[in-house]
């Protein structure tokens, strides 16, 4: 009898442990689900804001262009050989024009940059895209850089070398998310100041996007696990970034190559095959 009971007790204890483990796993899944729902909601909100900004931004962009055109016309009228010499040769007037023209240039640059950022955000936030489309690889990279600018500025210098044929049939939102993840990771790997080299080129008919950083590098022992969901070495990391990158590269029938040396930096290469993707 005693042996049966202790056997039962043993089984009960095992079951209890199993239930506890399952409940922990369930808690973790619940936490992840909440986080992903939160980020989906945030994505929608951001896409909505980007859309709302377009009307006032349209007016600003157009007006900054108009100020340049009007200044040009007014200047041409005042400096016309027909107009009186005290106007034409008045150094104060010329100085005023130089100032106005300078401000107009800055306004144009500023509004162009906002347009680029909004483009980047709406492209990035478009997770729901179901059909691949024809796009420009370098435009996607540029709009991605506009939205990660705050992460890099004054600390990381980005070097661009675009050599690939930029035409690509892809999910532009997903490509943008791949690049955001890789560039932000590269930036996180850099302690203090450093550099990121972004290069595109063609290897046979494939397009290759290479992102190299001068960061701390990934130890050989971890390299095999970086694409596993849940694997992370960051303090507050979820271990989802590179797992998603892998998934999204798969959606493009793409390959990822990684080379890393501790203390020297890491290179990621996304290899995207030519040709149309299936819907």
């Amino acid at each position: 009898m005693d042996t049966t009971r202790s056997k039962d007790d043993q089984q009960l204890r095992e079951l209890k442990t199993q239930v506890e483990e399952l409940s922990r796993a369930l808690q973790e899944m619940k936490r992840r689900l909440m986080l992903s729902e939160k980020s989906a909601l945030l994505g929608q909100l951001v896409a909505g804001i980007a859309h709302e900004i377009n009307t006032p931004l349209g007016a600003l962009k157009s007006n900054s262009d108009l100020f340049m055109r009007y200044t040009f016309k007014i200047k041409a009228m005042l400096l016309d050989p027909e107009s009186p010499g005290e106007v034409r040769e008045n150094p104060a007037i010329l100085k005023l024009f130089a100032e106005v023209e300078k401000l107009n240039r800055v306004n144009k640059e500023a509004s162009d940059r906002i347009v680029e950022i909004v483009n980047g955000i709406r492209r990035y936030a478009r997770k729901d895209e179901c059909a691949p489309t024809q796009a420009d690889l370098h435009e996607i990279l540029n709009s991605t850089l506009a939205i990660v600018h705050h992460e890099l500025k004054n600390r990381v210098i980005v070097h661009l070398s675009y050599q690939a044929d930029p035409r690509i049939h892809c999910f532009p939102g997903q490509l943008s998310q791949i690049f955001v993840n890789l560039i932000v990771n590269a930036s996180h790997a850099i302690e203090g100041r450093g550099e990121i080299f972004i290069k595109t080129y063609n290897r046979n008919s494939d397009a290759v996007v290479e992102i190299r950083d001068t960061g701390k590098g990934i130890p050989q022992s971890e390299l095999a696990r970086i694409f596993e969901a849940g694997f992370t070495t960051k303090k507050n990391g979820m271990g989802m970034g590179l797992a998603l990158v892998k998934q999204m590269a798969d959606n493009h029938r793409g390959q990822i190559e990684v080379e890393s040396a501790v203390g020297a930096g890491t290179t990621f290469r996304i290899i995207l095959p030519a040709g149309d993707l299936q819907e």
């Binding site: 009307t55 007016a59 007006n63 108009l66």
Partner: peptide, 16 residues
């Protein structure tokens, strides 16, 4: 429905 868009567009067309 946005006055600011109309102002900008009509100013441009008036100029050019």
């Amino acid at each position: 429905d946005e006055e600011m868009v109309l102002t900008s567009l009509s100013s441009f067309l008036t100029l050019e």
